[in-house]
Structures are given as C-alpha cells and as structure tokens.
C-alpha cells in the first residue's frame, strides 16, 4: 500500500509540468548517454591486455610463478582459494614476437609489452574457476600448465597432473572444433612448465613430457570406456559421441602432444623453477621466451 502510493506520488510529480521535473528529465537525458559511453569504453580498454592463464594441480607452483613474474621475486605462498590476476611486463631478455622484425641495431626505445597473468586455484574442488575462464576469456593468448616435476615421479602425482591436463586439452580441442565453423578459430598454445627443476628428485623436462604423454593415453582410454555422466544420459539431445570426447587423433593407442596440432593446440614442454633454494628467484627464462613468442 505505502509503496504504491509513494510510487504514484512520484509519477505525478514526474509528469507534472513543474520546472524541477523538466530539469530532472533534461539532466537524465544528457548524462545517461555519457555514462553508457564511459561504461562501454572502460570495458573495451580493460579487455586489451593479452592474458595468459596459469593452470595446474595444487602445489605445482602457479602462485609462486605469478608473484615471480609480477614482482621479480617469488613470494611465499599457500594453497589458493581464489583466482588472482596480475599485470607483468616482459623482461628485456625475452623478445616479444613483434620484436622479431626489428633490426638488432635498432636502439630506439621500445617499451616491453605488458601482459595479464591469471592464476587459478588447483584444488580439485575449485577447478571450475580455471575451466570457466578458459571458456570465456576472449583475449586469452596462451595457457601455462604448471606441473611439479618431482611429484610426477610418484604414481598419484602423475595421474593427477595427467587427468587435469587431459581435461584442459580436451576443452581446448572442443573449443577449437566449435569455433571452426565461426570466423576465427583462435589457436591457444599451451606451455607445460615443468617446475621445481631445482629439487633433487625432479625429472627433467623431456622425461616429464613422455611420462605425461603415456599417462594421458591411459586416461584417455578409460575415459572413453567410462560411464556416461548424468548430464548426457538423462536430458535428451546433445549427447557427445565418442569421437568428440577423444583427445588427439581418434583411435590411436599412443598419445603424443603433437597430435594436438591438428586441433589448433600447440603444446611445448619446458623446464624451469620458480624458486631457487633459499627463496631467491629461480630459472624461468625459457618460460618467458615462450610467453614472448606468443604474446
């Protein structure tokens, strides 16, 4: 009752030929377009920075890497609960792809490009953050999958990393297949960052690569034979057939990262460590180089 009567009062005032009402209308009609303009403009600008996504199992060193890239030195970290973005600048040692065409002798000042880095939680319950930014991110330029090179020497650690990587690659593959029909099938390269190379028990990057490939092949096999999930069977319609849910080249027994090429996903594996002993920054030039090449 009270609200309807106040609303009525309000409307009466708004339509009355009072000078205040005219002024109010004038003000609104003038400022609204401006506000909308600024709103859209802000959105457009914010979109610009090339974004790289940090993904990987919990404890792999994503957040450590983020702080290293953003601040030049790694911070101590704990398990993440929320995503975190940061703006970083390519160091002068890594050349960006635009830079490739510049002459070696060109000394004119050229600002190193900036990029946004988005860290995601790796805990099993929180991976929806990563997958949602994977499917919605429009300025996504690349994906850095961080693995703990020491953890993959244990069966459980290897399985966890391989399952996660399998799911991520499958998402990228599906994204590529879907966007093939639309005008720009944007390829998203993936860097598998074999982190913690400083740890005594860690495997070298080459071995991490083959181990992951072997394990993904197993994951792929059981996934294809596993139960359908509830999302498919009970609602009619979009039932994914086996081929679209098969990662890489359909029907092959072995999985190689190179199979992802035909799906527009280029995978490279490079070693490094975000943190040296004693907490100082480790060796990450190879990763910076990759970022520079894909910016």
């Amino acid at each position: 009752m009270a609200s309807s009567s106040t609303a009525k009062d309000w409307l009466t005032w708004a339509f009355s030929p009072a000078i205040s009402a005219i002024f109010a209308t004038l003000l609104i009609s003038l400022t609204l377009p401006l506000l909308i303009h600024f709103y859209l403009y802000r959105k457009a600008v914010a979109k610009e920075l090339p974004t790289f996504l940090l993904i990987g199992p919990s404890g792999a060193g994503k957040t450590t890497l983020l702080t290293l890239f953003a601040n030049g030195s790694p911070s101590p970290t704990h398990t993440s609960q929320e995503p975190q973005s940061a703006v970083c600048q390519l160091p002068s040692s890594a050349r960006s792809s635009e830079d490739r065409y510049r002459s070696e002798n060109d000394t004119s000042a050229q600002a190193q490009p900036k990029l946004a880095l988005l860290d995601t939680p790796g805990h099993g319950k929180l991976r929806h953050h990563a997958t949602s930014s994977l499917t919605t991110g429009s300025s996504l330029k690349g994906l850095i999958f961080v693995v703990d090179s020491a953890a993959v020497s244990s069966a459980a650690g290897l399985t966890e990393a391989a399952e996660y990587l399998h799911d991520v690659l499958l998402l990228l593959q599906k994204r590529h297949t879907q966007s093939k029909t639309s005008k720009d099938p944007q390829a998203i390269p993936v860097l598998v960052a074999a982190n913690k190379q400083d740890v005594f028990t860690s495997l070298p990057a080459g071995l991490v690569r083959t181990k992951l490939e072997e394990e993904i092949a197993k994951v792929r096999r059981t996934r294809s034979k596993g139960l359908l999930d509830s999302g498919i069977g009970m609602d009619e319609g979009a039932g994914g057939d086996e081929e679209t849910n098969w990662l890489g080249e359909y029907g092959t027994t072995d999985f190689k990262f190179s199979q992802m090429g035909e799906h527009g996903v280029e995978v490279s594996v490079r070693g490094g460590n975000a943190k040296g002993d004693g907490g100082e920054s480790g060796k990450v030039n190879q990763w910076w180089e990759w970022v520079g090449g894909n910016i």
């Binding site: 957040t63 702080t67 101590p76 970290t77 704990h78 398990t79 993440s80 609960q81 860290d119 939680p121």
Partner: peptide, 13 residues
C-alpha cells in the same frame, strides 16, 4: 603468524 590473501600469496609473516 601469517597474513595471506585468499589467492594464496603470503603478504606478511
């Protein structure tokens, strides 16, 4: 004693 962000970065400890 640690002060950290929900994203897991230790700001002070």
């Amino acid at each position: 004693f640690e002060i950290l962000t929900t994203s897991g970065i230790v700001l002070w400890r």
